[in-house]
Amino acid sequence: MIRFDHVSKRYPGQRDALCDVSMHLPAGELAFLTGHSGAGKSTLLKLIALIERVTRGTALIDNVNLATLRRQRIPWLRRQMGIVFQNHQLLYDRSVFDNVALPLVVAGYRSTELGRRVRAALKKVGLLERERAMPITLSGGEQQRVGIARAVVHRPKLLLADEPTGNLDPELSAEIMELFVQFHQVGTTVLVATHDIALLKRFRYPVIALAGGRVAHDDLAGESA
């Protein structure tokens, strides 16, 4: 699903944020991406989400080359993935339902099917009864679950999570992580960026560790076909 070959990313006027990174996350896999702040986790996710472009090397998502993807095709590729952000990135001027519905609206779903899918996603994260609420009235954990519902409502092949448990206590973190495991079990490829060691220990999934912009450790290395 995600394949990096000697990928480097350099921001103008700075040293390489990522340096010669090679990795492969097979379809249907769940893996952690870890490392200290500044190790390159965010940069790697930004490359995958096409927020940033690769400087050198080849990055493939579902066999699509990110380096040569035209600007107009970026929305299309982003619809194949769901992204969960540390700060939720919810729109606070509209209801929980409308927030979760956004990826479907963007993709041009009709309202009948849209309502069905949004409620299914909200039910999955246990917030069905809060669909009319405004996000600001929800707790941090609930807001994060709204963010997750929005990330999975269009049933993406790839789910990216950037520090999804960053602001949550261990109990809530584990709940959120359980959700990712459930999506993984129905076949979604999941990549969770986190520096939460406790989480890594509790959920035994493969880990890709970055340090100083390089791959320091990769449980999946050698597995790639």
Binding site: I51, P75, R78, R79, I83, Q89, L91, L102, P103, V106
Partner: peptide
């Protein structure tokens, strides 16, 4: 910020 979020979840420029 709203525009950024919509771009991130795959909203086209036209949308």
């Amino acid at each position: 910020s709203e525009i950024e979020v919509i771009k991130l979840i795959g909203g086209t420029d036209a949308f």
